[in-house]
Design a protein around this nucleic acid. Structure first.
Length: 160
DNA sequence: ATACTACGAACCT
DNA sequence: AGGTTCGTAGTAT
């Protein structure tokens, strides 16, 4: 099953089976808008409300255990906070695996629900994003994270 | 087998 | 400020 929500610049698409979410991604083409798990949360989120997606069920079974653990950790980053690729690597148990974390974020199959936009570089600069850095900036701004010359303040917004 | 990452630290100009 | 080098595991060719 597939549902889509129309936003300013495109659609957010959610693939699911009953209450289990299989994939969330972005597209420019119009899709049919239907009811789907978490629809109200997405509406609230994009209208600027503080939303916790923690209740939603996501299907991680198909992913390598390493990626699975990365997504599980990334999911816990609170609304309006950020952390680094390295910090996640440390929480997984090997601080040298920042690049693998980047890899996992790049392939993030649960856009917004796994908040990969809250993962930035250790020095506070944004790093990269699958939908472009501007999109990452937009999401962080939406959550009230302020940027000072293209960096987030590590003191104010850091999680771990 | 090899090359490439949404990184980071150390060590250079 | 910038550039180079290397480590590491998953993915793609």
């Amino acid at each position: 099953m597939k549902g889509a929500l129309k936003l300013d610049k495109g659609f957010i698409v959610v693939e699911y089976e009953s209450s289990l979410i299989k994939r969330v991604y972005w597209t420019n083409e119009s899709e049919e808008e239907k009811n789907f798990p978490g629809r109200e949360l997405f509406i609230d989120y994009f209208s600027g409300k503080k939303v916790d997606f923690g209740e939603l069920n996501i299907d991680l079974t198909e992913f390598p255990s390493f990626f699975k653990r990365i997504y599980e950790v990334a999911r816990r980053i609170p609304y309006g906070k950020v952390t680094s690729y390295k910090s996640i690597a440390e929480l997984i148990g090997n601080s040298k695996l920042q690049r693998v974390v980047g890899n996992a974020m790049k392939n993030n199959p649960f856009l917004i629900i796994v908040p990969c936009h809250r993962v930035v570089k250790s020095d506070g600069s944004l790093g990269n994003f699958s939908l472009g850095v501007e999109f990452k900036k937009y999401l962080l701004t939406l959550e009230g994270v302020r940027l000072e010359n293209e960096k987030v303040s590590c003191f104010r917004y850091w999680w771990y």
